[in-house]
C-alpha cells in the first residue's frame, strides 16, 4: 500500500485506512532505533527542511532524528518571530525554499492554517508539525501508536483528554483520530477551556476531572500555559492544580490498567503530579520514542515508500 497524498496537514483529512497504514509502517520502523547502527539508507539523497516558526525542542528534534535515521539530509530553520514581524512573508520564504528543491518541508507555525497555505503554494510535501490551536497530526499519530501498542487496539477504548482544550491542537487531532478509530472520547476542563460547540465533534464534555476519568482506559493530560492566566482562562495555577491535577488521589477512579499520557513539556505539580508522571501508569516517554518512528513512517510514505 502507498499513501496517496502530497501532504499531511491534519488528521481530519485522513481516512481510517490511511491512519492504519501510517501506524503499521511506524511499528515496523521502531526496531531501527534500537539497533547499534541506527541508520538505514532508505531516504538517501532526499532533503527534509524543518521550518519552525514557533519554539520547539521535542518535535523538531524528533523530526530531525527521524530524517537522519532514514539517511535524509535535514536542515533546521528556526524563525523566532512570525512572518509579519520578520518582514519576509511566509509565501516568499516558501518560494525560496522551494527553489532549493527539498523533498519535504515540515512546518510549525503559531497561526492556524499556515501549513495549508504553504501546501497550496509549493510542490513539495508539507508535514504540519503543529499550527496554532488547529492540528498537530504527528502528535496524534504517535499517541494512537502508543495506545495501540499498550492496549492492542483503539476501538472501544474510553479516553479522557483533560486541560485547555480550546487552545490545544493536540486535543483536536486526537479527537479526530481516536473517533475515526472507534474510541470514545471525553474532554474535561473548566468551561473557559472548552471551545464552543465541541460536542459536535462527537465528544462528551465534563467540567470535573473526577467525572471525566471515571473508568477510562487512557488519560491524556494537556499542558497548561501560564500566560493564559492573563486572559482569565483560569484564576491561578494553584486553583487549577487543586481541581485538575492528576495525582494519586484521583487516578484510582480510572481503570486499573489506565495509561497516562502527556504531549509534553509537563508542568509537574500543575496538571500532573510527579509521582504520576514518573509512575507505573505513565507512558509519556514511550510517546517520545514512538514519535520518532511515526515521523520516520510519514517521511518514508510521503516520499513514495510502500508499506
Amino acid at each position: 500500500m502507498i499513501l496517496e497524498r502530497k501532504d499531511i496537514l491534519g488528521i481530519k483529512e485522513l481516512s481510517k485506512d490511511e491512519i492504519l497504514l501510517i501506524l503499521d509502517t511506524a511499528d515496523s520502523f521502531i526496531e531501527i532505533s534500537t539497533r547499534e547502527i541506527k541508520k538505514v539508507p532508505t531516504l538517501r539523497g532526499k532533503t527534509v527542511i524543518n521550518l519552525f516558526y514557533e519554539a520547539s525542542t521535542r518535535t523538531r528534534t524528533s523530526f530531525e532524528i527521524a530524517a537522519k535515521r532514514l539517511s535524509a539530509d535535514t536542515i533546521n530553520i528556526s524563525a523566532s518571530t512570525s512572518s509579519v514581524v520578520k518582514g519576509e512573508t511566509l509565501l516568499d520564504t516558501a518560494r525560496n525554499l522551494e527553489a532549493m528543491n527539498p523533498d519535504v518541508i515540515v512546518i510549525r507555525h503559531s497561526a492556524a492554517g499556515a501549513p495549508h497555505m504553504l501546501a497550496g503554494m509549493v510542490k513539495q510535501s508539507i508535514i504540519n508539525a503543529g499550527d496554532g490551536a488547529h492540528e498537530h497530526p504527528t502528535q496524534a499519530l504517535l499517541d494512537m501508536m502508543t495506545i495501540r501498542a499498550k492496549k492492542g487496539r483503539l476501538e472501544n477504548l474510553n479516553i479522557a483528554i483533560v486541560g485547555d482544550i480550546a487552545h490545544s491542537r493536540v486535543a483536536r487531532s486526537n479527537i479526530y483520530g481516536l473517533k475515526k478509530m472507534g474510541a470514545q472520547v471525553t474532554v474535561a476542563g473548566p468551561a473557559t477551556m472548552i471551545p464552543r460547540d465541541i460536542e459536535q465533534m462527537g465528544v462528551t464534555v465534563y467540567s470535573s476531572l473526577d467525572e471525566a476519568i471515571k473508568e477510562v482506559d487512557v488519560i491524556m493530560m494537556l499542558r497548561i500555559q501560564i500566560e493564559r492566566q492573563q486572559q482569565n482562562i483560569f484564576p491561578s495555577l494553584r486553583e487549577y492544580a487543586q481541581r485538575f491535577c492528576l495525582s494519586k488521589k484521583n487516578i484510582s477512579l480510572a481503570k486499573e490498567d489506565v495509561l497516562v499520557m502527556h504531549p509534553g513539556p509537563i508542568n509537574r505539580g500543575v496538571e500532573i503530579s510527579p509521582d504520576i508522571a514518573d509512575g507505573p501508569y505513565s507512558v509519556i516517554l514511550d510517546q517520545v520514542t514512538n514519535g520518532v518512528a511515526v515521523r520516520m513512517a510519514l517521511l518514508y510514505l510521503l516520499t513514495g515508500g510502500k508499506a
Binding site: K12, A112, G113, G132, A133, H134, P195, R196, I198
Partner: peptide
Amino acid sequence: HEGFASTELGLPGIP
C-alpha cells in the same frame, strides 16, 4: 465567528 467552525479550525473566535 465563534462557533463550531472556529472550534474545528482552531482560530480565535469573535462571538
